[in-house]
Design a protein around this nucleic acid. Structure first.
Lengths: 255, 255
DNA sequence: TACCATTTGTCCGTATGTATT
DNA sequence: AAATACATACGGACAAATGGT
């Protein structure tokens, strides 16, 4: 998992940046620091090196480091205190909700290693909710995949995906093989798909959800229901995702 | 808060209707039942009285009651099951999150009367979070309005709005007078504003939030933080809204 | 109290590459 | 081709907050 434009620090503790303008220096710095944090090099509560030190290490101006820190601060990854330093915050995943929302992209963007475990799968008849979402008759057969998603080994969400059946036969096996819904869909002829609508509620977890997400029972769940369509507007996937409320923050850009 | 055509039930549990033909009986009945539901007299999942009982209480024929129930069914407020009875549906407010999100528009769209009560207001110095959102210096003066929002007399959200101060002096008074943030802003020269980004988390309520929202302590709240800018992209308002988790559903259209 | 070193916050400026008009 | 705007990067100076002597 190497980002070519990024090199690890060498023996002196210096970092080499790609100055070819393909990516802004401040972004590379932010990405590097983010990696270090997620790798555990800096843990929650730890103090980061001072802006001065970082500017030396990266070989940039302090302002450039500050631009990077500003980015991390905006994403609640760090907390800055004047006169004291910059400190690592508790880990909150910013989950971007957009027309092209993909779980693994979302985690990769924040440099977490995504992982999906198929808890179980089943063939069932569409109930009221599912039939409306997938625009099929009630009791039309659908496949359901129940997936536990992790980031850096921490459970992040427990999601259920429903696919209309004649079209997506055998998708459970595809997921076992690939571990990605996106890849699954492309194997079944869906090159691209889009999120049409997302509904968000907050509610207490069921005992199964609390168990799977390693969540205390009094901590809420953030539940999203999303409708995905292919490029022709045909529904391909109805997904219900349940996030651990205090480990995930949904971010909606209304541009 | 009296709807003239509607009277509360008297001691016998009977309802008095206005038979002056100004409004059809079935509509009055539907409205009454709707109010009772929104007031919490009947909660989601509850069984309404049977059609026979209702027709006795209202002093009308069963067909008239059925006409009213048909109306409520059409609006998904209740669900009728033959042989079992009539049940209150999950009555959640669909709160649309878009570039042009307005509280009152959202409620009007769903036939709920919006109301905003100014709980308190204060002048304070921008903390880290607010200064970043409004793009002002830390400890820059801002006005904070803390508003309880209701729909049909039921608390829906408790929100705090922060406005940068030289520009929006006296906005608390404006809100007292108008009861609307949108109108407030237009009074201060902001003809139009847009929601730039929204962040959503789920968390347990504080005791104050539980009290204000009439929410059991174990029910989560859905918290959104939104950044509003004017047509020039200048931040005008940073808003934190806390919704009763089981009474509101955020709907994000990613078009 | 006063003083000092450290660290972040803000402000002034300059320069450059890219994209748009 | 010229003008303009914008994002990026750098340099320096000082203010403000913190923590210790």
């Amino acid at each position: 998992m190497h980002t070519p434009e990024l090199q690890a620090n060498n023996d002196d503790g210096r970092f080499l940046l790609d100055r070819s303008q393909r990516s802004p220096l401040w972004r590379q710095i932010a990405l590097t620091l983010e990696q270090e944090i997620h790798r555990g090099r800096y843990e929650p509560g730890d103090k980061l090196p001072t802006e001065g030190e970082l500017s030396l290490w990266f070989g940039v101006n302090r302002h450039t480091v500050r631009r990077a820190l500003f980015e991390l601060r905006k994403r609640k990854l760090v907390k800055v205190e004047q006169g004291r330093g910059t400190f690592v915050n508790e880990n909150i995943l910013d989950y971007m909700v957009s027309r092209r929302t993909r779980f693994s992209e979302n985690l990769n963007r924040q440099n977490r290693s995504p992982k999906g475990i198929l808890i179980r799968n089943e063939i069932m008849e569409a109930d009221e909710e599912i039939s409306r979402a997938l625009q099929v008759n009630r009791s039309h057969p659908v496949v359901a995949l129940h997936i536990l998603r992790e980031g850096d080994g921490r459970p992040l969400s427990f999601s259920s995906h429903f696919f209309p059946l004649p079209r997506f036969t055998g998708i459970a096996q595809s997921f076992q093989d690939t571990g990605s819904v996106t890849v699954c869909l492309s194997l079944h002829g869906v090159e691209d798909f889009f999120r049409d609508e997302t509904r968000v509620v907050a509610r207490p977890p069921t005992s199964e959800e609390a168990r799977l997400l390693a969540l205390p029972k009094n901590r809420p769940i953030l539940e999203t229901k999303s409708f995905n369509v292919d490029k022709h507007g045909v529904p391909v996937d109805y997904g219900i995702a349940r996030y651990a409320g205090d480990r995930v923050q949904l971010v909606v850009k209304t541009a």
